[in-house]
Nucleic acid binder design. Structure first.
Lengths: 157, 157
DNA sequence: ATCGATGCAAAGCGTTTGCAGGGGT
DNA sequence: ACCCCTGCAAACGCTTTGCATCGAT
């Protein structure tokens, strides 16, 4: 399980390349932030990344973590997830996945699923045309499956 | 178009019932916030709702708008949308729709689309079985199409 | 009379920015 | 030598909270 996540992380050499192609330098801080992100089993906040990376780089500042996360997202090796609560969460997974949102607990889980460029067309062939007429070009999608685990008791507020 | 949205809003009587069932009072401010939300063509931020509702209730405060939105969400008649940028957006539509997220402006738009109970099966027949084996019952989905309007200038940093 | 709701102002919190010093290229 | 990056602190914007007052039941 953990192996699978670590193995999905970019090796340092490729990370460096991704950063530099996008016009950023590859620094020890950014590498550490990326590695923490790639090894995380959940989607950490900036603060959580900060706390985790301090083990490797004690003098790192929270501002640097924010800037590193920005660089990683801009380089396409990490994603900033949309959230309802105040703080953003980050994701370094490279494989495409859906989210599974539990109505009972509110938890969000990853569901590994290959990215399907034709998904929209598959769902509704007329939809893409309709969007293109509006001038909207679809570059991706996010699918969230909502439901609940049967049997488990509710734990909502 | 606007008619269709207004007609999807709850009438005041039902709104009152929804609020009071959840333990909130139905006040003029909350009614006005709900109506502004239900008639909006996009998903306004709290600030936008505030500006809009001031026309009807000039002395309303931003704090009251936030509290009203909280009451509406807790009563199940509105939803707080997840966002990447700083401010939250709200939605009072009851009919099913996808979201269109613009990568350039961050705006979220509705895309009216009938709810398709078989959408997941249509995408991947094996997926439902896989989920049921996990004990997860899918009761709904949220689909967000990400992209951008062609031609318009970028406004990202 | 009670208890929640309002409006105002101030505080809170996540995030961003200005700036001086430091390091890679 | 240049320019980007770092770390610190201050600023910023969205949201929440404390509190006195108001209003409905």
């Amino acid at each position: 399980m953990i192996e699978a996540m670590i193995s999905s992380a970019l090796p340092p050499k490729e990370l460096r390349e991704a950063l530099e192609t996008a016009g950023w330098r590859c620094t020890p801080q950014r590498l550490a932030v990326y590695e923490h992100l790639a090894e995380a089993e959940h989607h950490p906040t900036a603060e959580e990344v900060y706390q985790g990376v301090k083990a490797a780089i004690p003098r790192i500042s929270l501002a640097t973590v924010y800037k590193a996360l920005e660089a990683l997202v801009a380089s396409g090796v990490a994603a900033k997830l949309t959230t309802t609560d105040g703080s953003a969460r980050y994701d370094a997974r490279r494989d495409h996945h859906y989210h599974l949102r539990c109505l009972r607990s509110g938890a969000v889980e990853d569901l590994p699923t290959p990215y399907d460029p034709d998904l929209v067309a598959k769902i509704d062939p007329a939809l893409l045309q309709q969007l293109e007429q509006k001038g909207f070009r679809v570059t991706g999608y996010r699918l969230e499956l909502v439901g609940f685990y049967e049997g488990a008791g509710a734990s909502r507020s």
